[in-house]
Simulated assay, not measured.
Amino acid sequence: MKNNTLHYGLTGNIGSGKSTVAALLAVLGVPVYYADDRAKAILTEEAAVKQAVTELLGAEAYREDGSLNKTWIAGKVFHDKSLLTAYNHIIHPAVRADAQNWQTAQSNAPYTIREAALLFEAGSYRELDGIICVTAPEALRLSRVMNRDGVTEAQVVARMAHQWPEAEKEVLSQFVIVNDGQQPLIPQVWRIHHALLQLYSQGSK
């Protein structure tokens, strides 16, 4: 049997619940690459990346203990489009290379999941076999993020402005999960899981 591991992306706009879906897939034994977590690690562990960020944003981007000053960085980049673009040009290629190395190591899995908020915006969706998009009404997403992060509505809206509209992401996705608090989440995840296992089985014959 040939190796034909499928590599799918999992995305959704802020507050959609994509992390919850990723956790459910992980419980089912699916290898999950958490791009946001890896990005944070890369930003503090890779010297070349740290130097580039410091040169772009200043020494305040890192605390004295070497940890990332996320609040300070967010305050800088989310109010300056050119600065955000430059920041993303530093981190996205590094995360993409890290994800590809990780995928190569998962050759025994039927399929993998790359969970990332900006799969479409960063263009990395083109490297994957397909996309699962998690959606939720904007008002619900706003409420979730405000409660989760302890931030204002204006701060959440500013972050939303840098993401593609849900409708555009849905059109380019192979699977869509509706996480509106009304439709049960687990059955939707279960159906997609089995659909991907079937796709893998068909491709490995």
Results as ranks from 00 to 15, higher is better:
Thr54Gly: 08
Thr104His: 13
Glu64Ile: 14
Thr85Ser: 11
Ala116Thr: 03
Asn88Trp: 02
Tyr200His: 15
Pro31Thr: 03
Ala59Gln: 15
Ala109Val: 10
Thr20Tyr: 00
Ser67His: 11
Trp102Ala: 04
Leu118Ala: 03
Gly66His: 10
Ala154Leu: 15
Ala47His: 13
Ile73Glu: 03
Phe175Asn: 02
Gly181Pro: 06
Lys205Trp: 14
Ala39Tyr: 02
Val49Asp: 09
Lys50Ile: 08
Val157Met: 12
Phe120Trp: 01
Ile91Leu: 04
Lys205Tyr: 14
Ser173Lys: 00
Phe175Ile: 01
Ala61Val: 09
His89Gly: 15
Ile73Gly: 05
Ala61Glu: 10
Lys50Ser: 12
Leu84Val: 04
Ala35Cys: 05
Ser124Pro: 01
Leu6Arg: 04
Ile14Met: 13
Asp65Ser: 11
Ala35Val: 03
Thr135Ile: 11
Ser143Ile: 11
Glu153Arg: 12
Glu153Gln: 15
Gln106Gly: 09
Ala105Phe: 05
Val49Gln: 09
Asn69Asp: 12
Ala195Lys: 05
Ala117Pro: 01
Asn4Ala: 14
Arg148Gly: 09
Ala158Arg: 12
Trp190Arg: 10
Glu166Val: 11
Gly9Glu: 00
Ala74Thr: 06
Gly150Arg: 08
Arg148Ala: 08
Glu60Phe: 07
His79Glu: 09
Ser67Asn: 09
Leu128Cys: 01
Val95Glu: 02
Thr44Gln: 13
Ala105Glu: 12
Pro187Gly: 05
Glu170Val: 08
Ala97Glu: 15
Ser16Asn: 06
Gln155Ser: 12
Arg141Cys: 08
Thr5Lys: 05
Val134Ser: 02
Glu168Phe: 08
Tyr111Asn: 01
Gly17Glu: 00
Ser16Cys: 10
Asn179Trp: 04
Gly29Ile: 05
Pro187Thr: 04
Thr135Val: 08
Ala105Met: 06
Ala99Tyr: 03
Trp190Glu: 08
Asn4Ser: 13
Leu57Ser: 10
Gly58Cys: 09
Gln174Ala: 09
Thr54Ile: 11
Ala48Ile: 11
Ala59Pro: 11
Glu138Cys: 14
Val145Glu: 04
Thr20Glu: 04
Ile14Tyr: 07
Pro184Tyr: 05
Val189Leu: 05
Glu168Ala: 11
Leu28Ile: 02
Tyr200Thr: 09
Gln174Phe: 04
Ala195Tyr: 06
Ala94Arg: 03
Val49Glu: 08
Gln155Thr: 13
Ser124Lys: 06
Gly150Phe: 07
Gln183Val: 12
Lys76Met: 14
Arg114Val: 10
Phe120Ile: 04
Leu57Thr: 07
Ile177Glu: 00
Ser67Arg: 12
Val49Ala: 11
Gln202Phe: 13
Leu6Gly: 03
Ala154Arg: 15
Val30Ser: 02
Ala122Ser: 13
Gln163Ile: 02
Val30Ile: 09
Gln106Pro: 07
Tyr33Glu: 00
Pro165Met: 07
Leu6Phe: 06
Asn4Pro: 02
Gln183Thr: 14
Thr152Ser: 14
Thr5Val: 09
Gly66Asp: 10
Val171Trp: 01
